[in-house]
């Protein structure tokens, strides 16, 4: 049975670690990491693969650093 699955790619050099995406992700896919980018921000990172491509993170991200992918996957 096919199921819609999502995946995101974060441009970690442009992320400012504002944490808004973490707040709005229903699957808790994203969390602020413990590593910093060149600008010294603790950038956001993916911590699980349960993304459903609901678009909340790309809606709220002020710096448009997230690219979202969506595909039908056989489960």
């Amino acid at each position: 049975m096919a199921k819609v699955k999502g995946a995101i790619v974060i441009d970690i050099e442009k992320c400012k670690g504002c944490g808004l995406c973490v707040e709005v992700c229903p699957q808790k896919v994203i969390a602020l990491g413990d590593k910093v980018n060149a600008k010294g921000y603790f950038y956001a990172d993916v911590v699980n693969e349960n993304c459903t491509a609901c678009e909340n993170c790309v809606m709220i991200c002020p710096d448009t650093v997230i690219t979202l992918y969506r595909a039908k996957v056989e489960v």
Binding site: K5, E55, Y69, V73
Partner: peptide, 10 residues
């Protein structure tokens, strides 16, 4: 599998 150009949603 998912992260491919044709699957870009945003």
């Amino acid at each position: 599998e998912i992260i491919k150009d044709e699957n870009i949603a945003f």
